[in-house]
């Protein structure tokens, strides 16, 4: 029972760390997906005195993805419907050209500033409307949300690591006697610590398996899927191979570090 309790404390600690890491990964993926969705709706309007070729626009900044010319017909129609066709064509020619630029990704405020500066360097472009106020607010909100989750994950990991260090002392006390006795009979270090590494590895496997079950359930839960559908986001919540391998690797690495610390801190007692 005592042994199960000792195992449980390391397993719970590892599960907490793995859980917070995967939650951060899910939030990161959601934000990236949301940014992509925003970038599809986000565009910059450029006013130019002369027509600019699409290829020239693409040379101005590598963020520019698509260029759409805005038709002045609606504006002219609203100005005066009494104009004859010839005058209307003349007016059209004298009006500046309006372009709507779509971007490859949702830009950062710095990227927008740079893009604006690059566009205004062109001698024909007289005005750039980047809707930076609303863009900045949304972008900052997303970054804030991501950072809050990151801080939460880091805090959970630190607290859990402190718990693991406390556990380490118990393990050190528990395994020190066995390792010392084996040492008195000439056991090499690898043999003395084999039990410890085996136990740590078993705990790492159990923790990873628990995390696999939790996230396999979450990723197939209708409630979770509905919530993501509500905000029109389609992401991989948990990749049973890629994500699992990463989490398993982290779990094994942490357990091995823990076991190594015990082995390095071992002092032979006679």
């Amino acid at each position: 029972m005592k042994s199960v309790k000792n195992h449980l404390s390391l397993i719970v600690a590892l599960v907490s760390i793995l859980f917070s890491i995967q939650v951060f990964v899910i939030v990161d993926r959601s934000i990236d997906a949301y940014k992509e969705k925003l970038s599809k709706n986000y565009s910059i309007v450029v006013v130019s005195q002369k027509r600019i070729k699409n290829s020239d626009f693409l040379l101005i900044d590598k963020l520019i993805d698509e260029i759409e010319i805005l038709s002045p017909d609606n504006v002219i129609r609203r100005l005066n419907s009494d104009l004859n066709r010839a005058n209307m064509e003349l007016l059209k020619l004298s009006l500046p050209k309006f372009y709507k630029l779509k971007l490859k990704k949702y830009p950062t405020p710095q990227e927008i500033k740079k893009l604006r500066a690059n566009l205004l360097q062109n001698r024909y472009i007289s005005k750039v409307e980047d809707f930076s106020n609303s863009h900045d607010t949304i972008y900052k909100l997303l970054v804030l949300f991501k950072n809050v989750v990151l801080v939460f994950a880091v805090v959970v990991s630190i607290v859990t690591m402190l718990l693991i260090l406390k556990e380490l002392r118990i393990w050190q006390f528990k395994h020190n006697e066995r390792m010392s006795i084996m040492g008195l009979f000439g056991a090499p270090t690898w043999l003395r610590s084999a039990v410890l590494f085996r136990l740590s590895l078993v705990d790492a496997i159990i923790s990873s398996a628990i995390i696999f079950v939790i996230f396999a359930y979450i990723s197939s839960s209708s409630w979770v899927l509905k919530e993501f559908n509500n905000i029109n986001i389609n992401i991989v919540i948990f990749d049973p191979t890629g994500d699992f391998i990463k989490l398993f690797g982290i779990s094994v690495a942490l357990s091995i570090i823990l076991a190594s610390m015990i082995v390095l801190g071992h002092k032979e007692e006679v």
Binding site: S3, I181, M182, L184, F185, G186, A187, P188, T189
Partner: peptide, 25 residues
């Protein structure tokens, strides 16, 4: 060296007053 000491200890049998048995085995 530790390896030579281990080699020597593998050829010695030690009996302690407090037995020094591994309790979980």
């Amino acid at each position: 060296s530790r390896s030579k000491l281990n080699f020597l200890r593998r050829h010695i049998g030690i009996v302690f007053q407090d037995y020094k048995l591994i309790k979980e085995w």
